[in-house]
Write a protein that binds this DNA or RNA. Sequence first.
DNA 1: CGCCTAAAGTTATATATTTCACATATTTTA
DNA 2: TAAAATATGTGAAATATATAACTTTAGGCG
Lengths: 215, 215
Amino acid sequence: MKTLRVPEATVTRLSIYSRFLERLDRNGVTSVSSGEIAEGVGVSPAQVRKDLAYFGEFGTRGVGYNVKDLMHYTMKILNLTQPWPMALAGAGNLGTALCTYRNFRERGFAIVGVFDNDLTKIGKRIEDLTVQPLEEMPQVIKQRGIRIGIIAVPTRAAQEVADLMVRNHLKAILNFAPIALNVPEDVMIRNVDLSVSLEVLTFNLKYRGTYESEE
Amino acid sequence: MKTLRVPEATVTRLSIYSRFLERLDRNGVTSVSSGEIAEGVGVSPAQVRKDLAYFGEFGTRGVGYNVKDLMHYTMKILNLTQPWPMALAGAGNLGTALCTYRNFRERGFAIVGVFDNDLTKIGKRIEDLTVQPLEEMPQVIKQRGIRIGIIAVPTRAAQEVADLMVRNHLKAILNFAPIALNVPEDVMIRNVDLSVSLEVLTFNLKYRGTYESEE
DNA sequence: CGCCTAAAGTTATATATTTCACATATTTTA
DNA sequence: TAAAATATGTGAAATATATAACTTTAGGCG
């Protein structure tokens, strides 16, 4: 059994391949080549093969990959064979949208607890959930076996919420606040920063990836 | 005038530095070192200096950077000296949340038109906006000088909306649909894929960035 | 006024990632 | 059943990115 480091970009693409395969499967496609996957998700065929090679051999030379099999392999690698209940902090517009976000469920993710400290939001119903006070998060995390937290609170409250999540042993946090959260080494943070994405666009609208220094 | 290619990761970090500087400035901090910026956003000091070096010399050796100056420089580089009106397609929960998203405005971004084809959504008011039929997007883009589009429609409708945006000369699209959009070379797409972010987390919850092949 | 310290800017090194090219395996076909 | 076509898996080369080490410059202080 050998352990090897997998580039994060590879994991990201694996997730993309996985969903693409799911779509192929839904459409009744049974076999696919690295070239077709590449075409479908916008990378090179060699990249697809190299990425998959980190995890094993899943194809048949001269033939390609079995869609259903490869889909299952990718989901297993991504740890999606179990459902993932999640705790959401922040019941504003963004939080509400996340609660109803269909793409989560399709992949086994489900927000099972929504928490906020704003008295005007506590008690609000969002589909089949009710916004609870933040202080109730610990017991819900325990009861539901939650391992992933989502932070959708205002920037000024984000660190405090992160601390609370860390104290309650969450090791994975999806953070929408535009701030670098301070957490222990063993806690993973993924930042979703929409302004950053837009600013990469505005930069490129001007320079298209190059920069012309004055003079 | 020499032109040099800037890594996308550098542009991403520049945006992060920029907002961090904005926060320092708001807090009355006037001077900062690469080490403090690094600490504040979670990268190495060398990385900060290297990133800035792509664009010029902004600091004083032995002293550091003037916060206000560097903030302005970064914003100028990122093309944020002008406001950026944006067109949003999709007035569901996510679209609604984006309309009210405060972090956009702070950086000069503003959704000035919301469009949808769902008759139950057209006419709906979201703050000071009214949801319009998609077919009206072209004229609004023209009138308001919009250059950035946001796609927050269901996956099945995303490509069609992208085509519409491309036809109307938008060159930058922020896409929330979990699908690879097909657009001409000169159109930039940034995908925000929340499931992908979560799946990177679930992968790491199991393997922490390494993979142990069976046997 | 010169020495010392701090920190930016820069060059060189190391690491990581992607691309390329090819060897290998499978199926099809003549 | 041999040859051709196809497409995977992989090692080597090329490229890109990040880290580290070093050089330069500014300011403080004795």
